[in-house]
């Protein structure tokens, strides 16, 4: 498999900080993979993805994106490969209307107007927001704004989509609509690589691989199943347990011992149904 992101021995310290925010980080992401980065506040997750996009000026280590080594000269080339969606829906909405906002990246890239109109419409249809094209952002919900932000990224057709806690300020319904857009994208022909930072473990469970960060270091990586089964790791990094794990623990206290490995919500539900049959 081709590596689309390679990070090698990356370190970074904010000018006024007393300890490094990123401490000798190395990892790789395969093209087409969905990787989630988890870790508590201040563990360096956001700084890490900002470094990938050249949004912070790191001094040591290398970042290579789609074959291009990140440097002050190549930063705009690298940014063409990466589309980022940030946490706050309001603070990344540049355009005065939905369509204007989706067009912003295309305008920056100098895309001719007729092509731009088509791509804006296609992207808005992909996130089911075309009927709101002329709306102003103040008349949209948080989930709708984040879908518009995603449309702005989709219109640019980048090979990598980075979500920096993009769903953390949304209500459960808004979060679900954003996630379903991502799942839909994953099923398309040119499935983008997704790198998502999240606190929501049920969201992280959708990824193929998890990177766990603590104190500026990458302390563990593995499939969601492996990570969620490692209760010690989850507790030592201050991460919440996924709902299904919590439920298994409570059931164990009642004398119902669920399988030891991590189960998704659906798997646990199935197990419970079958348990009823065998009792």
């Amino acid at each position: 498999m081709t590596k689309i992101i390679s990070v090698n021995d990356l370190s970074y310290q904010y000018p006024d900080a007393d300890r490094p925010t990123l401490n000798h980080i190395s990892f790789e992401v395969n093209a087409g993979e969905w990787v989630a980065i988890v870790g508590h506040n201040g563990s360096g997750k956001s700084t890490l993805v900002r470094a990938l996009d050249g949004l912070i000026d790191f001094k040591s280590g290398t970042v290579t994106v789609a074959g291009t080594k990140l440097s002050p000269e190549s930063v705009w080339l690298v940014r063409e490969h990466i589309g980022m969606v940030f946490q706050n829906p309001d603070n990344q909405f540049v355009g005065a209307t939905v369509a204007d906002d989706v067009a912003f990246g295309l305008e920056n890239a100098g895309v001719p107007r007729p092509e731009m109109q088509q791509r804006v419409q296609d992207a808005l249809e992909a996130v089911d927001m075309w009927q709101f094209a002329e709306r102003e952002p103040s008349r949209l919900s948080g989930g709708q704004k984040q879908r518009v932000a995603l449309a702005g990224i989709i219109a640019m057709n980048p090979s990598i989509i980075v979500l920096d806690e993009a769903t953390s300020m949304l209500d459960p319904h808004g979060r679900q609509t954003v996630l379903s857009v991502l799942q839909h994208l994953r099923r398309s022909n040119q499935a983008p690589t997704i790198l998502s930072i999240t606190h929501d473990l049920s969201e992280a469970a959708q990824a193929q691989r998890l990177l766990v960060m603590d104190n500026g270091q990458l302390i563990s990586e593995g499939t969601p199943r492996a990570i969620f089964s490692d209760e010690q790791l989850l507790e030592s990094t201050g991460l919440d347990l996924p709902f299904s794990t919590k439920l298994s623990q409570q059931l164990a206290k009642q004398g119902l011992i669920a399988p030891k490995h991590y189960l998704t919500d659906d798997e646990l539900e199935d197990w419970l149904w079958q348990l009823h049959l065998t009792m």
Partner: peptide
Amino acid sequence: DLATAMESRGY
């Protein structure tokens, strides 16, 4: 935040 978002979108 807005400046970061604009930069990441190639402005």
